[in-house]
Nucleic acid binder design. Structure first.
Lengths: 190, 190
DNA sequence: TTTTTGATTAATGTATCAGAAATCAAAAGC
DNA sequence: GCTTTTGATTTCTGATACATTAATCAAAAA
């Protein structure tokens, strides 16, 4: 006992003690093994979501954020300006090989649904690609723009639909036919 | 030494020993305190980050406006001065509404072909969008990453495939469920 | 050539611990 | 009487320790 007669502060308080649920999360915690590189992400999420318990459906958290830089880091933390990692993607760089020769076309109709091209899709068309049989091309036939698969049979060219409701289109002697480019990608929006 | 003369297996192997990075995450782990109720969520997330690599949107997106052409062209090859050019479009700006909250996932399987999402497609997933019934979402269910359409029926959540070969997935009382984000676009490459 | 096997090393889950944080209420100060 | 102080009490968290599991090695055995 270090208390003297002139100092009687403190002392037993039956029932004193920190109450359960008084921590930042309102409940106890358990240690979970987290890969070193993801520790900051998990901590940050726990700080922002775990405490506020923002939820959109039932009691489950909506989203656990993916790391902006999730690559395996040998040592240290990534620099915020460090973007040269396989985990980041630029759509232009990824989808446009020849910028000067690329354009977009919106799909109308459903003649190519078998190829996963649907009405309303946005096509990325590359004029720099050499059209060859099997390619899906954007072409003008008798003044009409169309999207079909290019085929070569018996020395003739055909534009093949990928939907049985549409007939194959033969490119004949007097047909006005022009290929605009090769379809590289189709973008579907929801 | 418990070995006898008729059993000489094993023994010293200089250089033997488990190699660094041989665990499921490819790197060491550290214990992080997680609220008890969030432990399953964090675990499932860690499991899937390690198994299904996702790519984040670049932090320094390029700007590349390219021509978007209309569907009706009378004749001739499109040129920059062509009257029929409707607009120009930059893929990054057009497809990514919330750069910091966007990531990409490659589709595996064909449970959503009815929605035009096919095996191998690249999904643009937006974490900033509030998931609501009818949205196509990327979700984790009992530790498995999946892409499905979110539905709400009778006070319950369902993850609906868009291919009759697959069963609907009901989110029940004990189901570990969390939504990673809402699918904004699907990119098909040829 | 393939499989076996003790030795070797990394990784993981759990236990433990020290210090921090929150709570209590009588004593002290005003 | 009201507010502040203060030692005791209890919970909580981050870090470390530890036991077990997992992965790797290569000579010996099959």
């Amino acid at each position: 006992m270090t208390r003297n007669a002139s100092n009687q502060h403190g002392g037993r308080r039956p029932g004193a003690g920190r109450k359960p649920g008084s921590g930042p999360y309102g409940e106890p915690t358990r240690p979970v093994r987290v890969p070193v590189s993801l520790v900051p992400t998990v901590r940050s999420w726990l700080t922002n979501v775990g405490r506020h318990r923002a939820q959109s459906f039932t009691r489950s958290p909506t989203v656990l954020p993916l790391p902006l830089y999730g690559s395996r880091i040998a040592a240290g933390f990534p620099s915020p300006a460090d973007d040269h990692q396989e985990d980041s993607l630029d759509l232009n760089a990824h989808l446009v090989k020849h910028p000067a020769a690329t354009f977009f076309v919106r799909v109308e109709g459903d003649s190519m649904t078998g190829a996963g091209i649907h009405h309303g899709d946005l096509l990325v068309v590359d004029r720099a690609l050499e059209p060859k049989p099997g390619d899906i091309v954007v072409a003008v036939v008798d003044g009409e723009l169309t999207v079909k698969r290019l085929e070569a049979r018996d020395g003739r060219l055909w534009l093949m639909p990928e939907n049985p409701d549409y007939p194959p289109l033969e490119i004949r002697e007097g047909t006005e036919f022009l290929i605009w480019g090769v379809v590289a990608h189709a973008v579907r929006s929801f």
